[in-house]
Design a protein around this nucleic acid. Structure first.
Lengths: 194, 194
DNA sequence: CGCCACGCGTACCGATCGGTACGCAGGCGA
DNA sequence: TCGCCTGCGTACCGATCGGTACGCGTGGCG
């Protein structure tokens, strides 16, 4: 799921694949480099040769997941080029749809913010960066709608997405998904001027 | 901030205080038992004598935080006994207000769900339990309002609270707080039948 | 005064963490 | 055929993890 963009050695590629799998399933702090190496079937030094450290590997993983998320904006524009509202719904639906994947653990980027509370930690800084970028893109899309407070609406929608991602983990995935869709509709409707 | 309810030895009390402080500030997994013991000024065995394990201590901490959160329902009923809508706003305002505390790290219970991805882990099971209880209480309050879908509204409000708690960590606390209040108002308004 | 039981801290345990020194195996040019 | 360079895994490092064996100090009671 998602490439890592850089050209890598065969061993590095196996490490990347295993790391994405494990990070998605169990989070970042819960998996050790030994586990990644064992799962990928390569030695630890191959991991450290291709990625400088576990932190760097984690950051690369988060970046890859984030660009995959941002890709939904382009997909939305491709799907309905002349309907901004439909594009927004498309982006929201993508988040809602992801919640159905087995073993869903919420947004991995947001989770990383919890796993690394220290704001000076490089992983945490990457998280803040990526989240800001997503909000920026979402705001840009919302700003094309006939609303009076695009920043407020975009922030509210991101809040709903984060909240739904969270509640899906300890409540019902189905209810979280339905709630995200419906609440987003209500909020959008209450912002749209007619 | 919150008692631990059980009677404890003096050393145990110091452990409890230090653990609450550290868990709130840095999360659960990030702090070791040695750090808790050192901060509280007691030896590790005192920690294990008063609480059976780090997991048990963490669960006790989460329970204490959760009952503190549930207390806002009673406080709301005391503050405005005959106005259910005002009570609901009171509960929401409490969550919004907590976001202003320095070093705010979101809902510690929700964070624990991220820190312990394994659903069989005792800490994680406590989290699911506590979150379910909160939703139950919230739903009971919402059900007293003239709305057609109290379960849906309660779930939406919890989603907003979780989302605001999350965004406050990597975006702006002020915006998250304002968004929670305003979005909750919009959603409540759209559910109320007149 | 002497005894005992209890609460406590020092010092340690094995396991696991992220990270690395080093040596082996294989392909290529000479 | 030889030498070299590259890419890889084995085995190890110190640090830290959660948890515990054990002995010291003290206060109550005979």
């Amino acid at each position: 799921m998602v490439d890592g963009s850089g050209t890598r050695s065969p061993a590095g590629e196996r490490v990347w694949r295993a790391a994405c799998e494990l990070f998605s399933r169990e989070g970042i702090r819960s998996v050790g480099v030994a586990e990644i190496a064992a799962t990928s079937g390569v030695g630890k030094p191959s991991l450290y040769r291709n990625f400088g450290s576990k932190d760097d590997l984690a950051i690369a993983y988060l970046r890859a997941q984030a660009v995959a998320g941002l890709a939904s904006f382009e997909a939305a524009e491709r799907a309905c080029p002349d309907d901004d509202l439909a594009q927004l719904r498309h982006v929201i639906a993508r988040v809602a749809g992801e919640m159905g994947t087995p073993g869903y653990r919420g947004c991995v980027v947001a989770n990383a913010a919890i796993e690394f509370p220290d704001r000076d930690h490089p992983v945490r800084q990457a998280v803040d960066e990526l989240k800001a970028e997503y909000l920026r893109r979402l705001t840009a899309l919302v700003a094309r709608l006939p609303v009076d407070d695009p920043d407020g609406l975009a922030y509210t929608l991101q809040t709903l997405m984060e909240g739904a991602s969270a509640t899906a983990q300890f409540h019902s995935v189905e209810r979280s998904r339905a709630t995200l869709i419906e609440a987003a509709d209500r909020v959008i409707a209450s912002h749209l001027r007619e």
